[in-house]
Structures are given as structure tokens and as C-alpha cells.
Design a protein around this nucleic acid. Structure first.
Length: 439
RNA sequence: GGGGGCGUGGUGUAGUGGCUAACAUGCGGCCCUGUCAAGGCCGAGAUCGCGGGUUCGAACCCCGUCGCUCCCGCCA
């Protein structure tokens, strides 16, 4: 017999069906047992009149909640059943995998009794059964799908760059080093160089959604040592403005799709209405941002006069929310002093670069890149890099590389902001941090 | 790497110098009932992270240590 989804049972009244799922609740009475079975699509009450099969009844009585079961029975309409107005009259029950008793914690217990996040991460697969997490990863799937759809519609090609690198790139710090046969290798901290290579390679527009690795011992609610980066790079741009316009339209597209598909359930499970952002997003230059912070009485440490700290980002995000009712804001015109060497300069000290702040959290850095070999070489030297170490990269710009720009965006940070969750560790399938390599 | 906070039954909390360490949830047993957040009664389960110290007396105060957590730095 084919499996019927619990959410689809209404279409099977008076039929005998097979359902499979987890034992959600067992109400075991003297003459009758009520089993609430749960699958991804919903819950259903299964009724067993014990005298019909006492040995089966005794076996059911022993079952621990969350056991994985296959059940067959007849679906009957019954308006007095609060759970969907129908029930299944039990005919057979197979225990596919019993749940040990007791459970490490109650995934469906009262929210106030939910264990601390770290303990739930130890039992992540149990935690994932909660509807919040199920929805979270359904949203992620829908969102990623929408991003790819947007890009493909707009002529982008998907790429997969290597995560093993032969030499430290970019900063040289914060890299994981590993043994590689007779030599050493490094885990990629970004696909930056390789997506730029695709520009030199004539692909014109590319994107990649893939893992990156950062060896930062960061203990915050928004950092991971391994995370999924959403990267894009496009050629023939006139400035970073082209990149921002593409990104804001893409985010609007993705938000709209998520709202269309999951808006109701987000309202139900997370308790708010997902807002699709208006374009263009508000924009502030770094100068304007600092003027605003002064107005908001947010004190920046003097040594960060040309930068923003997380508190400043939160303050700006809150102001933009109150003033424009917008969750996103671009901060543009960052000083070269706080940007990597490959960002194109604007004037002597500025750059054609931007950050995207969402819900007060930095989720993107982007820029028009420096594509002129001589200028790039100078900028690398200015940052104290030895050209020999990155010669493979500098070579990309020797034989006709178009002007280009792009950005990197953290998938889990975006999800965290979208669903208003406080900690990135619960917006990623499995968290990796300085003290967390398992499960 | 720097700073703050927290560690009490399986889980979540209360208790901040003098109790047999409390409550909720879960677990076990019994009773009741076509139940549905089921209900009622009973029970098991914690040497209060670990080590040292102060005190007549420490879950509680002090020192150390470990773990977790948040913030800063760094970034996405």
C-alpha cells in the first residue's frame, strides 16, 4: 500500500490507508488507546479499541513517544475529534524504530522547558523535529531556490570553486591549515579570487552558494567557523551601484517568494508577518552614517572614526526601521583603510564598496573590484602583501579582464534576520564553532 | 585574544549563610474517563560543575579550575 501524507487524509475518508510518522502522544485508557501520529505534513489521531487485539494494545502501551511507526487503518470522518475532525481506526501497527525512554528532552513540551541551545545542539536531530526548525529549513530551501531562479533568469551562471587552496589568500590570517600529501593546503575563506577569475574567464555573471571556512575564535551569536556563503560577481559594471541594485531586487524577489509559499505558516509559528522589502533600499554613505550616529548620540571609539562597530550597525538599523520602516540599509563609500586591497578606490582614500545591514546585522560586503593590473598591484603593496604570494591571482588581470563587482552574503545570517531569530546556531543545520565539531 | 554573566533531579527553573533542597515537565505505578494541553492519587530521581578555603554551619561567601553563554575584537 502506498503511503498517505497525514495532511492529505481529508481526501481519503472511508478508505484504508497507510500512514508513517512519529508517535507524538499516546493517551492510553482502559478500553481504548489514542495515538497521535505526526509526519512533516501534520498530525492525526489513531484510535485503537483495545479488546480488538489485547496483545497489540499491550505492545502499544510500552511505546515511547517519538517512536517511528507505520500504521494502517480506515480513515473516518468524526467531527468530535478536535484534531482535524477525523481519525484512523487502527488495523495494523509496525514499530520501525522504537524511541528509548526517557527522551533526552521533550521537543514538543512547553517552550519554557526547552533545554538550552547548546544541549539541543548535542541532540540536534531531536531539535530539528520541532516545527520551528522544520519551517526554517523549508524557508531556506524556498529562498535558495528563488535566488537561483532570479540569477538564472538574469543570465548568471552557477559555479563551484575549490575549497582547497595552495596558498593563503586575502589577509593570510584566519585560515585553516591542513596536511596535503607532502605539503600544506588551506581551506578557502571565500570564493573571492575564483569568482573574479570567472570574470577574466569571460563568464560575465556568476554566482556560487557554498561553504567557506574562517579560523576565527569568535564567540558570538552570529559567527561560525564554517558557513554557507552566497556569492555573486558581475562584469561590465559602471560602479558598485549596479551590484547593489541587482542584490536588492534579488532579495525582494526571494522575500516575496518566501512570503507567498510560507507567509501564513511564518505568522503561525514565528508570530509575525514577513515584510517584503521595498526597493531601492535606503543608502547611507559612511560620512552620513557617522553624522547620523552623532545625532543618535552613539559614541564611536576614536580609533574607529572611519569604521562601524556592531553597536553602531544596530543603532543605524533601528533608526532606518523607525524612520523608513525598512529592515535593510546600504552603507557605502567605505575608507580604503578598512577594506581589502582588491576593492576599487574612489579618490585617494575611499572605495567603491558597500555593506548591507539587515535588522542591524551586517550580512553582506560588496564592491566594484579593481581590475587594472598596475593599480591592483600597487594596492596590494599598500596593504603590505607580497605580490609573489598572490601572483596566480594578479595574473587574472593581465590579458583583458572586464570591470566587475560583486558581493558575499551569509546564508544563515540572512535567514536569522528574515525569521528574527536571535542566534545563528539555530539557523544553520549543524553549527561549527571553535568548540563545536559534533555532531 | 580581552571583558561580563551563568552552572541545583533527565530537562527548565526557585532557593543567595542555619530544611528532610522546592516547583514545573518528563519517567514509573494505580484510579477514572471517546480522550484530545486529558484528569486524579502515589512514587523514583540532585552528595546543588569540580577542587580548595572562610565559618559552629556553605547550593549560598572567597580563591582556583572546567564548561556554557553573551559582548568586544574579526567578520558574513
Amino acid at each position: 500500500m502506498e503511503r498517505t501524507s497525514i495532511g492529505d487524509l481529508r481526501n481519503h475518508i472511508d478508505q484504508t490507508v497507510k500512514v508513517q510518522g512519529w508517535l507524538h502522544v499516546l493517551r492510553d485508557q482502559k478500553k481504548i488507546q489514542f495515538i497521535v501520529l505526526r509526519d512533516r505534513t501534520g498530525q492525526v489521531q489513531i484510535t485503537h479499541w483495545k479488546p480488538n487485539d489485547m496483545p497489540l494494545a499491550e505492545m502499544i502501551s510500552e511505546l515511547g513517544t517519538e517512536s517511528a511507526l507505520t500504521v494502517t487503518g480506515k480513515v473516518v470522518d468524526n467531527p468530535s475529534v478536535k484534531l482535524g475532525g477525523l481519525e484512523i481506526q487502527l488495523e495494523s501497527l509496525v514499530v520501525e524504530n522504537k524511541a528509548e525512554i526517557p527522551l533526552p528532552f521533550e521537543p514538543f513540551g512547553e517552550i519554557d522547558n526547552l533545554p538550552a541551545l547548546d544541549y539541543r545542539l548535542d541532540w540536534r536531530y531531536m531539535d530539528l523535529r520541532r516545527k520551528q526548525n522544520l519551517l526554517l529549513f523549508q524557508v531556506q530551501t524556498t529562498m535558495e531556490h528563488a535566488l537561483r531562479e532570479f540569477w538564472v533568469k538574469n543570465g548568471f551562471m552557477e559555479m563551484h570553486s575549490p575549497k582547497l587552496m595552495g596558498s593563503p589568500s586575502e589577509s593570510g590570517a584566519e585560515l585553516f591549515e591542513l596536511a596535503y600529501f607532502e605539503t600544506k593546503a588551506y581551506l578557502a575563506q571565500s570564493p573571492q579570487f575564483y569568482k573574479q577569475m570567472a570574470m577574466a574567464g569571460g563568464f560575465e555573471k556568476v554566482f556560487e552558494i557554498g561553504p567557506v571556512f574562517r579560523a576565527d575564535p569568535s564567540f558570538t551569536s552570529r559567527h561560525m567557523t564554517e558557513f554557507t556563503s552566497i556569492d555573486m560577481e558581475m562584469s561590465w559594471v559602471e560602479s558598485e551601484e549596479d551590484v547593489m541594485q541587482n542584490q536588492e531586487k534579488m532579495l525582494q524577489y526571494a522575500y516575496q517568494r518566501v512570503k507567498d509559499v510560507h507567509g501564513e505558516e511564518i505568522q503561525e509559528v514565528f508570530g509575525f508577518e514577513l515584510e517584503v522589502p521595498q526597493v531601492p533600499f535606503p543608502r547611507l554613505t559612511m560620512g552620513e552614517a557617522h553624522a547620523l550616529l552623532k545625532e543618535l548620540k552613539y559614541e564611536m571609539p576614536p580609533e574607529k572614526s572611519n569604521d562601524l562597530d556592531p553597536g553602531a550597525e544596530r543603532a543605524i538599523g533601528q533608526y532606518i526601521k523607525e524612520k523608513y520602516n525598512h529592515d535593510f540599509v546600504y552603507i557605502t563609500d567605505w575608507p580604503f583603510a578598512v577594506r581589502p586591497f582588491y576593492h576599487m578606490k574612489r579618490g585617494e582614500n575611499g572605495t567603491r564598496s558597500f555593506d548591507l545591514i539587515a535588522g542591524g546585522l551586517e550580512i553582506t560586503t560588496g564592491a566594484q573590484r579593481e581590475h587594472r593590473y598596475d593599480v591592483l598591484l600597487e594596492q596590494a603593496k599598500e596593504k603590505g602583501l607580497t605580490p609573489e604570494g598572490i601572483s596566480f591571482y594578479l595574473d587574472f588581470f593581465r590579458y583583458g579582464c572586464p570591470p566587475h563587482g560583486g558581493y558575499g552574503m551569509g546564508l544563515s545570517r540572512l535567514l536569522m534576520v528574515m525569521l528574527k531569530l536571535p542566534n545563528i546556531r539555530e539557523t544553520v543545520y549543524l553549527f561549527r564553532g571553535p568548540n563545536r565539531l559534533q555532531p
